[in-house]
């Protein structure tokens, strides 16, 4: 579904990604693992076009998307959930969802408020509250729900468990499993290996802007050397 082929990405003059590659098949949940500053978020931003790659190719459903505007990439069916959540604080929950709404791409059952409220019951109660008045966990749910309103094929989740209480993290893992059952393809960046274990089928490990390891979660779990080298703190 998504194929990233040796992309280079920069912040100003600083090169962050050095020929990074990864791929995701339809229906998979893939984890992008690595330490702080490894380039996980930049990879996400490159795919959605906020930090367009200066070299390499990105294809999504057999279309070249590197270099086209962010909103066009989003319209093709990639939903981006940023690490910082970026809720519209002065808009209500319903208005936040409205901003994310896009027409459904063919072949998907469109997301509605009702369907989303089933998955995120907390949001239903707070639908008329301002985004800025919600707790961190609720904001994280809202930011995912908002992106789902765009009816994406592929969901990019940037560190969804970060800064959340353990109970909420568990809830988040269930949510992601639910979304997978709905047929969504998900790329999730994580520092928390345990969380990735709960949700992902495969993993890529990123270090200094390159992919250093690729394998199933089962393989990764048994590979102590890789875990020590790239993930141990």
């Amino acid at each position: 579904m998504l194929n990233v082929q040796s992309i280079d990405a920069y912040y100003g003059q600083a090169k962050i990604l050095h020929g990074l590659s990864l791929n995701i098949q339809q229906g998979e949940v893939v984890a992008l693992l690595g330490r702080n500053g490894a380039g996980k978020s930049t990879t996400m931003k490159s795919i959605i076009g906020i930090v367009p790659p200066r070299a390499g190719r990105i294809t999504f459903r057999d279309r070249e998307i590197a270099g086209i505007p962010t909103h066009s990439i989003s319209q093709l069916g990639i939903g981006y959930v940023p690490e910082e959540r970026r809720i519209f604080a002065s808009l209500t929950v319903l208005e936040n969802l409205e901003v994310g709404r896009q027409n459904a791409v063919d072949g998907l059952q469109p997301w509605t408020h009702e369907r989303l409220f089933e998955i995120f019951p907390n949001l239903a109660e707070r639908r008329n509250n301002l985004g800025g008045d919600m707790s961190g966990g609720e904001q994280q749910m809202l930011t995912i729900a908002r992106t789902l309103m765009g009816n994406p094929w592929l969901l990019l989740l940037d560190e969804p468990s970060e800064g959340l209480a353990p109970v909420i993290v568990e809830q988040m893992a269930h949510t992601i499993q639910d979304l997978k059952k709905e047929g969504l393809t998900i790329l999730i960046s994580e520092q928390n290996l345990h969380f990735a274990d709960l949700v992902a089928d495969r993993a890529f490990i990123v270090e200094k802007g390159e992919t250093r390891y690729e394998g199933t979660m089962v393989e990764l779990e048994s590979n102590e050397e890789v875990k020590d080298t790239y993930l141990a703190v």
């Binding site: 959605i48 962010t70 909103h71 319209q75 981006y80 940023p82 519209f88 604080a89 901003v99 765009g150």
Partner: peptide, 11 residues
């Protein structure tokens, strides 16, 4: 509030 995010949501 956040132009870039609005773009990332397909607008």
């Amino acid at each position: 509030e956040d132009r870039e995010m609005v773009g990332a949501l397909g607008v």
